[in-house]
Design a protein around this nucleic acid. Structure first.
Length: 788
DNA sequence: GAGTTTGAAACT
DNA sequence: CAGTTTCAAACTC
């Protein structure tokens, strides 16, 4: 689990953890550790904590984490309601629990349990554990799966994130599929079985695990808590809990799977536990406990166990065994690409009740290949991708529909895909992601989804997933910027690059830190997961030139926070373009102008000529000043404009143009960005996504560390309010040197002014206090860039 | 949808 | 650092 410490500290924290006795202890407990090197998930390993600086190298991890968190939040939100009421959700939760367990196992060696259970269905859980450790063959299987887990605690965190992502899809699928609990359970089983054949079992487990995570963090914040929870707690619980978990996990896991129906109640428990507990071990325990409770909402735990043991053993035997083998390789990929795939699978499963066989086949294919098949098979999906953004992001605020969930997934996927997704992105954008990220957020925002909705969502999600897969696998598939400029844009970027190969900042997708997707009409695109290495390398190069190249272009101060509800989107006085524009002919009244596009006023840093930026003129460096100046002029014009607005609401620009000073100028960009922020703002979680999107477009690609910290920080954030604060603060922090007024102008390698990404900086729940926090966090952020 | 305009990004 | 070129988005028709 990521502890706040880690996040804050950054790379250094990681080393500390590793060195920390607790970490060692955990490693000892978990068989996984040794395995780490073993497998595979290159991206993961790279990400892994081993090389913090690897942020870039393994941006995925970070992005994943973030996105996952975001997703979690969103998911959790969704899941919660489901738990409370819907059966389908329950099923999901169950699955999620198992998945979580598995994931957790990665850290703590739970896989063994699964493998054990699988191998020895008849064996009792308690015995299984010891056996598992003893049983090498099984252990080996688990090990194979573990490689994913190879990471240490931090990895677990990552995993959890992945799980979450997976779980999202799963949840959706499950929720959709299982109208009744029994059905849901059956479905789960089926899924597992099917998966077994292909090795998806693990994935499903992972996805399930994700669900659990979600539960754990119904509110995003909770999830964060889990991650953040200090090692201290871990240390305290670690020994006891881990041991217990190890012992009980097998049974619990099995139970978890079986328990699906009851989960609703259990899910909550889990959440509670998670929140309270720290460290992975805690999570595992929680999971277990939650499962137990869930499994036997009505009956006592003992009951659940009895039932579960047998059934579970069966299930496990069926599901887990095959999965274990496949699982190995799969897992890491899942993190990056696989996660999406698994999600997709899950979605597909949910969407296609009987299509499992197909899935299994696809699954059998290598991850990439798998992705491809899915893609090919992918149904038309609605792209709500956020930027990635994660994001990215991304970017990130996207459609509000149930699809939002999908978006989140997408964003996460994107992020994952991206070697270094930044978005999230809070996904670009990014997030959030960002995009975010990115993407993502709205989903969270829209917890309203019912079980039925979930189903639909799942189907949609699957579709989205497919689309993403397409992107990854087939350049043809591109993101769809379904959403016009507004919300999705930030998160979901589309490009039309022809010569840049989408490896330059010319490419919006690349700039946002997200991979190109279906909607993109780019040519010779290298901004795809397939070319992750290239993307990362290129990104590094660009960052080497300008560390803030992927930082959000527009920094917004708290003042500027426009609430989602604010239609007027007045430009925040504090908001500024990091570098300022250089417009000469557009008078800063068109989107050519980045300032205008970003919905911010021009500042001293701008070198524009004939600035008429409705959000704020360069001369009036401060928007307020401009406004004051304009006020007189505007007053009248405003009246007119107001009148027009009242009638024509949508067209603010005109008014703005007419009344540059008008407070209401709303640019499409603003809308998009604000939208990104707004959605989030409204919802605490979304913020993150928004952050990703905005700030860490790079989130996808960008250093994971940064993102995490950001995430953690963001977690507390309640909404937009925090965000703005962050922005303001961010500049300060980043600026350090920079003059606060003009927006943050940081010296860029190119002598250009760069403002640190606002989004990146964690948001402190408390504006003022937050600042301090932000400052702390900020260091982490820089660390990321420097690493590059 | 093609062509033009624009300004950021990249290059020298 | 300044100037030029390249590039893709924004815009126009």
């Amino acid at each position: 689990m990521d502890t706040p410490e880690r996040n804050q500290i950054g790379s250094t924290s990681v080393s500390k953890f590793e060195d920390s006795p607790v970490f060692n202890y955990i490693n000892n407990l978990s068989p996984i550790q040794p395995v780490k090197s073993i497998h595979t998930s290159q991206t993961f390993n790279s990400l892994s904590f081993a090389s913090l600086p690897s942020v870039f190298t393994s941006p995925h991890a970070s992005s994943y984490k973030e996105s996952r968190f975001l997703r979690r939040h969103s998911i959790s939100d969704l899941s919660k309601p489901d738990f409370s009421t819907e059966d389908g959700s329950k099923v999901e939760t169950d699955g999620g629990a198992t998945g979580n367990v598995a994931q957790l196992q990665d850290d703590s060696s739970p896989p063994d349990e699964k493998s054990d259970s699988l191998s020895n269905p008849s064996t009792e859980l308690p015995s299984e554990r010891p056996e598992s450790t003893k049983e090498e063959p099984q252990a080996s299987k688990s090990d194979s799966s573990r490689p994913d887990c190879d990471q240490k605690l931090p990895d677990s965190v990552l995993k959890s994130g992945e799980d979450l992502a997976l779980s999202d899809s799963c949840v959706k699928n499950k929720s959709g599929n299982g109208s009744s609990e029994a059905e849901g359970n059956k479905q789960v089983i089926n899924h597992t079985e099917e998966r077994e054949g292909t090795g998806y079992d693990w994935e499903s487990l992972m996805t399930e695990g994700a669900d659990l995570l979600i539960f754990s963090s119904p509110n995003g914040s909770e999830a964060i808590r889990l991650v953040q929870k200090p090692l201290d707690l871990v240390t305290g619980f670690a020994s006891s809990t881990l041991s217990q978990i190890m012992e009980n996990d097998n049974a619990d896991l099995s139970k978890m799977r079986i328990a699906d129906p009851v989960e609703s109640s259990g899910g909550q428990h889990e959440i509670e536990f998670l929140s309270s507990q720290a460290g992975e071990a805690c999570e595992l325990k929680d999971m277990d406990q939650g499962i137990d409770s869930l499994s036997f909402p009505n009956s006592s735990n003992s009951m659940s166990r009895e039932i579960t043991d047998d059934e579970v053993a069966r299930y496990i035997a069926d599901d887990c065994k095959p999965a274990s083998n496949l699982y190995r390789g799969m897992r890491r990929r899942c993190l990056d690409f696989e996660a999406a795939v698994s999600r997709r699978k899950n979605l597909e499963d949910s969407s296609n009740g009987g299509s499992v066989s197909k899935r299994s086949e696809e699954k059998t294919a290598s991850m990439d290949k798998q992705l491809v098949p899915y893609k090919s098979g992918g149904v038309a999906t609605r792209c709500v991708l956020t930027g990635i953004g994660l994001h990215l992001n991304a970017l990130a605020t996207t459609s509000k529909d149930a699809k939002n969930l999908n978006h989140d997934k997408f964003s996460s996927e994107r992020q994952l895909n991206l070697p270094n997704s930044s978005a999230s992105c809070h996904s670009p954008s990014g997030g959030l992601d960002p995009l975010l990220t990115s993407a993502v957020t709205e989903r969270d925002m829209d917890p309203s989804g019912n079980g039925a909705q979930n189903e639909e969502d799942g189907a949609r999600a699957s579709a989205y997933v497919l689309a993403e897969d397409f992107n990854q696998n087939s350049p043809k598939k591109k993101r769809r910027r379904l959403e016009p400029a507004g919300e999705t844009e930030s998160s979901c970027k589309r490009c039309n690059c022809k010569k840049s190969k989408c490896l330059k900042l010319y490419c919006e997708c690349f700039a946002a830190g997200v991979y190109c997707i279906e909607p993109c009409s780019c040519q010779d695109c290298f901004n795809k997961p397939i070319h992750e290495d290239t993307v990362l390398a290129t990104r590094k190069q660009i960052e080497s030139r300008n560390p803030l190249a992927f930082a959000p272009k527009v920094i917004r101060n708290s003042d500027s926070l426009p609430e989602p509800g604010d239609e007027s989107n007045k430009t925040p006085a504090s908001a500024r373009h990091k570098r300022g524009c250089n417009c000469k002919k557009s008078s800063c009244l068109k989107k050519y102008c980045e300032c205008y596009q970003g919905g911010v006023g021009c500042s001293i840093s701008c070198r524009c000529e004939g600035c008429k930026n409705a959000f704020g003129r360069k001369d009036g460096s401060s928007i307020l000043g401009l406004e004051a100046e304009l006020e007189e002029e505007e007053t009248e014009a405003n009246h007119k404009s107001m009148m027009d607005k009242g009638l024509q609401g949508p067209e603010i620009q005109n008014n703005e143009e007419q009344n540059p000073g008008s407070a209401i100028p709303s640019t499409p960009l603003q809308l998009s960005r604000q939208l990104v922020a707004l959605p989030f703002s409204s919802r605490s979680k979304p913020l993150r996504s928004s952050f990703l999107n905005v700030g860490s477009s790079s989130g996808f690609y960008a250093g994971h560390k940064l993102e995490k910290p950001n995430i953690l920080r963001a977690q507390p954030d309640l909404g937009i309010n925090t965000k703005p604060v962050l922005e303001d603060e961010m500049p300060d922090i980043l600026r350090g040197e920079c003059s606060p007024g003009a927006g943050v102008k940081t010296g860029s390698p190119n002598s250009k002014r760069i403002s640190p990404p606002q989004s990146d900086f964690g948001l402190s729940p408390l504006p003022r206090t937050g600042r301090k926090l932000i400052l702390q966090s900020i260091p982490s952020f820089p660390s990321l860039t420097p690493q590059h």
